[in-house]
């Protein structure tokens, strides 16, 4: 809500130490998720790919929860584990579904493997939560998992910003190879694309962007799915043309969504992750319907 400096004491403090880092984090998290979604859709040649749905964000969450479970309280360690979890999930996805001979099977195989990775990571996260030493730890993990940007400060920004920026740069660098993949894996290799190097870029890029996003904000789904779809009609549809615009649009979407969450007149603040899922799930269904119509 609008802060009136005349009636609110500490207005400057609230703005500088609460609102501003929160807004900057929203931009960072959204930018990373948007870029990761665009790059994943290009890499998997699947318009339904999303870091949340396909297990990358749940992988990062599992990493972070393991860090919390083993008692790591430093944000650096939490970040590190989240990055490893996200990168590991992306590597697993690329290894399971990365070698399909028949492109017609590709989309189904990728989608199913992604969802399996997501549910496996979710199950392991639940296991870690159920084994957590006390009720307080349990509830703090659960709340964090729901995804939100409340009570974050500049220390989170200084950690997440460089990592996310590095991740977006890595994904941007993969753009040319992602363009070549438009023609299928074999043709891409004939154009000089090294599949291992590309996979390494994808693992690193999604690990950095999604991992640090999850580490500061928990799981915020559907941004990586929605944003590339909104941006794609405005570009020439090459995967490389989509990465940076998706980062910008993702930043904007999460910032707006977070502001809406904060000012909605509810008893407790609506969690950002829940809000975006409420928008994202119907969007996903709409995409499926449109694809079905396209196939029919």
């Amino acid at each position: 809500m609008w802060i009136d400096p005349a009636t609110t004491p500490n207005a400057a403090l609230i703005l500088a130490e609460l609102r501003l880092p929160r807004a900057v984090l929203a931009l960072i998290v959204g930018g990373g998720l948007g870029a990761a979604g665009a790059a994943m859709q290009g890499y998997l040649r699947n318009p339904l790919a999303d870091p949340g749905l396909f297990g990358i964000a749940p992988g990062a969450a599992l990493g972070a929860v393991i860090a919390l479970y083993i008692g790591a309280s430093s944000t650096v360690l939490l970040h590190g584990f989240a990055l490893l979890g996200a990168g590991g999930a992306m590597a697993l996805l690329a290894l399971i579904a990365g070698r399909t001979a028949n492109p017609a099977h590709g989309i189904a195989l990728f989608t199913l493997s992604g969802m399996m990775i997501a549910s496996l990571a979710g199950a392991l996260t639940s296991l870690a939560i159920s084994l957590s030493p006390n009720a307080f730890a349990m509830s703090s993990i659960v709340t964090w998992l729901m995804g939100a940007l409340t009570d974050r400060g500049w220390s989170d920004v200084t950690l997440a910003a460089p990592l996310t920026l590095a991740g977006v740069l890595v994904l941007w660098r993969a753009g040319r190879s992602l363009d070549a993949l438009t023609l299928g894996e074999e043709a891409a290799r004939s154009l000089g694309v090294n599949p291992r190097a590309l996979m390494a870029l994808m693992v690193l890029g999604t690990g950095l962007t999604v991992g640090s996003g999850v580490a500061v904000a928990g799981i915020i789904g559907f941004v990586g799915l929605i944003v590339p779809h909104l941006v794609r009609p405005l570009t020439d549809k090459r995967p490389s043309s989509l990465i940076v615009p998706s980062a910008l649009a993702g930043a904007l979407l999460v910032l707006v969504a977070d502001v809406v969450c904060r000012i909605l007149p509810l008893v407790t603040e609506l969690r950002l992750g829940i809000a975006l899922s409420l928008i994202g799930a119907p969007f996903f269904l709409m995409l499926l319907l449109r694809m079905r119509r396209g196939l029919a």
Partner: peptide, 25 residues
């Protein structure tokens, strides 16, 4: 230059952008 059997084109790019992929190397 290698032309695979499948006429797979992952994204709905323009013909000019498709042909431009040949310049990647």
């Amino acid at each position: 230059g290698y032309l695979p059997q499948s006429a797979e084109i992952g994204w709905d790019v323009s013909v000019a952008n498709l042909v431009a992929l040949g310049r990647l190397p």
